[in-house]
Amino acid sequence: MSSTASLDRTELARLVDHTLLKPEATAADVAALIAEAVALGTYSICVSPSVLPVEVPEGSGLLVATVCGFPSGKHHSAIKAAEASRAVRDGADEVDMVIDLGAATSGDFAKVQADIAAVREAVPHPTVLKVIIESAALTDDEIVGTCRAAEAAGADFVKTSTGFHPAGGASVHAVSLMAATVGGRLGVKASGGIRTAHAALEMVAAGATRLGLSGTAAVLDGLEGETAAASGSDSGY
């Protein structure tokens, strides 16, 4: 059995940012998300900055992530920085920012780096900064260049997708390439279109160290079947 197939429910849950970024989300939806995250044992919740601050049960250990420049990334760097700073003041532990995708697709990685650096300066450590590169819209060379820019700018993670781009979400290929580029120096978050335990395990096997999931319960519920299938395969059946 592979190391990912042997992940139990608790271990997989601890890789998850339990996510609600729908524009129609209500305060009641956010409260339900928090309750579900605590029950499932996820690492964090990821919500829109406008719903912050939120109340997380004391002693739960649940962290709060948010987004900035979301979902298009076509915001002035100063606006992204201000949004991120406000989110941290409102209780966010982690910020997932969207790059200027046009800068990446035109090969202007210096501009990509400067954009990320502006947000990093606004939210210094210990705030965790994740950089959403929208990998499905990039070539391999653009993925590599953007990941290098994120590392040079001081980011903590590179992240595949917003989940809103028509080009698609996370792929095993992109996660593998991102992981190889950052070489363990940064985390890799796979997000966008991961709806099954099989897909989640594939992303972890490819190098993802965090998962952005909205259907977390369904993914975790499917884990037992994936583990059993892996066990059966290993036994030759």
Rank of each mutant, 00 (worst) to 15 (best):
A117K: 05
L101S: 10
A149M: 15
V158W: 03
T139D: 07
A230W: 04
L213W: 12
A199P: 03
S235Y: 08
S85A: 15
L213N: 07
G41E: 07
E94Q: 11
A117I: 00
A28D: 13
M97V: 01
I34M: 13
V119I: 12
A149G: 12
M1G: 05
A179V: 13
A117R: 08
A152P: 11
G73T: 09
V88K: 14
G222Q: 11
G169L: 04
G192R: 06
V112F: 04
V67M: 06
E121S: 05
A103W: 03
A155W: 01
T26P: 09
S48F: 07
T26R: 10
T146L: 10
G192F: 11
A180R: 12
G187Q: 13
S85V: 05
A152H: 08
E151S: 06
T105N: 14
T42N: 10
G236N: 14
E202T: 08
T10E: 15
E11Q: 07
D141R: 15
T26S: 15
R185A: 03
G163P: 02
L129T: 03
G215C: 04
A190P: 00
G107W: 10
A137E: 02
V172L: 06
G222N: 11
L201H: 02
K80F: 01
I99F: 12
A35S: 14
T181Y: 05
R195G: 09
V112Q: 06
A110M: 10
V95C: 10
L186V: 06
A152T: 10
L101F: 12
A118N: 12
I132C: 13
